[in-house]
């Protein structure tokens, strides 16, 4: 148990270190510097060098990195030399927007995809299944930057029911807040729906052929009961995996959708910081996203254990979903 936690913690730390070193290196290799942005194009090379020295960007690579790392470990991600806003504050300002968008998009995708997958798997290869497949495939092939304007055209321009762009903070009322969030969330959710539907449909069809499903039917349990109380849980491994990946990706910000709907989220923060060579902000945001990724992955691992009791013990945990599929058993059963 404890060794497992230590092992995972070490793994998480390694990921975060590698990601932040990588970002620092990329920013150092990229042409241009913060000083050039601050001083403008007319600045002399001497002035630029002096400015960079003042900001500490002339120090050796690893000195800069470890300086940043030690502050970061104490919760200080530095202050942007361009906007003069502390990076932590900038992230905390933007996080509610991105988090709400991500959670909303994921919820919409799951709420649509799960019933569709259940229908498809109950009547596989029927006209209904083919129809659902066709529609979700169409969703999959529509990128968010096409879906966004189309949704805006329908709901904002033609029907005038929802705002076309902008963000209303949740403090100003849940209603206006949701009205502003629903279109961007939908634009993001469309592609996820197709992926979720496919994965769950395939797993459900496989599970419904299992003997234990036949055995549950042979007890006289109803079709709905068998589906939701016996087949659904063992079929949801892949869905959990890709939901976790989607959520992690969405927390990193959906740059295109945020730009399209003018949302003040993480994606917007990172894109503007990159353009401004705001090394400090970029480094801070990326470190934050890396932590988010690692945390979500850990939650997904915990989720596997919640789904399947065979996963709950031992360091082989990460392999468990595959093992469950291969119908092998672990732990005590080996001695059976």
């Amino acid at each position: 148990m404890w060794s497992d936690i230590l092992r995972r913690g070490g793994y998480a730390l390694l990921v975060i270190l590698l990601v932040t070193i990588g970002v620092q290196a990329l920013m150092a290799l990229a042409p241009g510097s913060v000083a050039e942005v601050i001083l403008g194009e007319a600045a002399t090379p001497e002035a630029v060098a002096a400015m960079n020295a003042e900001l500490g960007f002339d120090r050796p690579f690893f000195v800069q990195y470890f300086d940043w790392l030690f502050s970061a470990l104490q919760g200080d991600l530095g202050t942007s030399p361009i906007t003069h806003i502390p990076v932590t504050e900038a992230i905390m300002q933007r996080l509610p927007v991105t988090l709400e968008l991500a959670v909303l998009a994921l919820s919409i995708a799951l709420l649509v995809a799960i019933p569709l997958a259940v229908l498809s798997a109950t009547f596989p290869n029927s006209g209904l299944d083919r129809g659902i497949n066709a529609v979700t495939s169409a969703f999959l092939s529509i990128p968010a930057f096409v879906a966004g304007p189309v949704l805006v055209f329908f709901f904002a321009v033609t029907m005038k029911t929802l705002p076309a762009l902008g963000w209303t903070p949740i403090e100003e009322g849940l209603g206006p807040n949701l009205r502003g969030a629903i279109l961007p969330a939908l634009a993001v959710a469309l592609t996820e729906i197709a992926a979720f539907h496919r994965v769950l449909r395939a797993d459900l069809i496989g599970t419904l052929r299992e003997d234990y499903v036949a055995a549950a039917r042979a007890k006289g349990m109803t079709g709905t009961y068998v589906l939701f109380r016996h087949a659904f849980r063992p079929s949801s491994f892949s869905l959990l995996t890709i939901s976790g990946l989607s959520l992690a990706r969405l927390i990193g910000g959906t740059i295109i959708v945020e730009a399209l709907f003018v949302l003040p989220g993480i994606g917007q923060l990172i894109s503007s910081s990159i353009i401004q060579r705001d090394v400090v902000t970029v480094q801070g945001v990326v470190a934050f996203i890396a932590v988010g990724f690692v945390v979500i992955n850990m939650l997904v691992d915990v989720g596997y254990g919640a789904i399947d009791p065979r996963v709950r013990r031992g360091p082989r945990a990460r392999k468990a979903p595959v093992a469950a599929k291969a119908r092998t058993t672990q732990g005590k059963a080996v001695s059976a």
Binding site: E210, D211, Y212, A214, A215, R233, P234, I307, D308, P309
Partner: peptide
């Protein structure tokens, strides 16, 4: 059924 390893639901 034939194989009790497969006719009992592993997650229940």
């Amino acid at each position: 059924f034939q194989d009790p390893g497969r006719s009992l639901n592993p997650v229940v």
